Amino acid sequence: MADRRRWSTEEILDTAAEVLRTSDAESFSVRKLAAVLGTDSSSLYRHFRNKTELLRAVADRILLAAMEGYEPEGDWKQRVAALALRVREAFGEQLQLAAVWGRYGSGGAGSRLVMEELLQALRASGLPDEEIPARYHRIVILFVALITAEAGISSISPKEYEQGMEQFRVAVLGADPERFPALSHFARDIRPLGADRRTAFEEIIAAHLAQIEAQFP
């Protein structure tokens, strides 16, 4: 018989985060979470109306943790870059939740803190107010795309990673130079997608910000 203990919202979110560390958003369900808690689904629906609302709340806690103790420093580009790395590192510890954030978004306190800092940094850049919403939207899409993609790469097991690297080496180094002349030419210098992810993340963010700055009057 299900335990009739009243779980708090924070306890539910803690348990949901633990479940999502070892599964994905597709296989996650309120029923599974209720089973882990030893209760029934109806008791959880008193806190969250549906699965999507619950997932948004879990993702928002990651953003809230990312912003804890944050103090903006440097110029606008340094602030945006620091914010991007902070969010990346927060989700890096809970990889499945990055995909949740990318898919469902969040409107909680953590999300609002990230939005506020990003908008403040863009205002500090000197951009006209009418251009800031569009720039903000593109930067957030870039954040989500990079972090979610990285989560997908990082979530595979060490064995799967090594198997993938071996296939990569065979496919690239063994490419037919007549059919793939460019690939053959650069084969020894091409890096797999999983290599130097932090450096690639920083460089892509920096390049995007430099592109924005180049368009200033």
Rank of each mutant, 00 (worst) to 15 (best):
R46H: 13
S111H: 12
G174K: 04
A210S: 15
Q120F: 09
W7D: 00
D60Q: 07
V114K: 00
L142P: 01
A35N: 10
V114D: 00
V36P: 03
G152L: 04
T9H: 15
P192I: 05
E11Y: 06
R4M: 12
F186T: 04
R188Y: 07
R191S: 10
A59L: 01
P181Y: 08
L183S: 05
H185G: 08
R123K: 15
R135Y: 09
V172N: 00
D196W: 04
D75K: 09
D24R: 07
A99D: 03
A109C: 12
L193Y: 13
A187P: 01
L119I: 15
Q94D: 10
A98T: 00
F216R: 15
V87W: 03
Y136W: 11
A207V: 09
A34M: 00
V87K: 02
A84M: 06
V19K: 03
I139H: 03
G107P: 06
S27P: 03
L173I: 13
L119Q: 12
F186V: 14
R6Y: 09
I190V: 14
A99N: 03
P181W: 09
L64T: 07
R179V: 14
R179D: 12
Y45L: 05
R179G: 08
L146P: 00
Q96D: 12
S111E: 11
S42A: 14
R46L: 13
Y70Q: 09
A200G: 09
Q163P: 03
F28P: 03
R112I: 08
L142A: 06
E166K: 14
I205G: 01
M67T: 02
E73P: 07
L193T: 14
L119A: 13
P158I: 07
D24F: 07
E53G: 11
S106F: 01
R56T: 04
V170I: 15
I132D: 01
G152V: 04
L85H: 11
G105V: 05
P192K: 03
Q94V: 08
A134E: 15
F216N: 12
A16Q: 01
D129I: 12
D176S: 07
A99K: 02
I190Q: 05
E10I: 14
A210E: 15
H185P: 05
I153G: 03
E160A: 15
R5F: 10
E18I: 10
G92R: 03
S125K: 02
W101H: 02
M1E: 14
D3R: 08
A99E: 02
V140R: 04
M165Y: 11
N50W: 10
E18F: 06
R191H: 09
G174I: 10
A124R: 06
Q96M: 11
K32T: 11
E18P: 04
S125L: 05
R21H: 11
I62E: 03
R86K: 12
E150V: 01
R46N: 12
A145W: 09
L20P: 00
I190W: 02
R49N: 10
T22G: 10
D60M: 05
E213C: 09
V58H: 00
P158D: 08
A99P: 02
R5L: 11
D129H: 13
H208V: 12
E11K: 08
H185I: 13
S43E: 07
E26Q: 14
E130N: 13
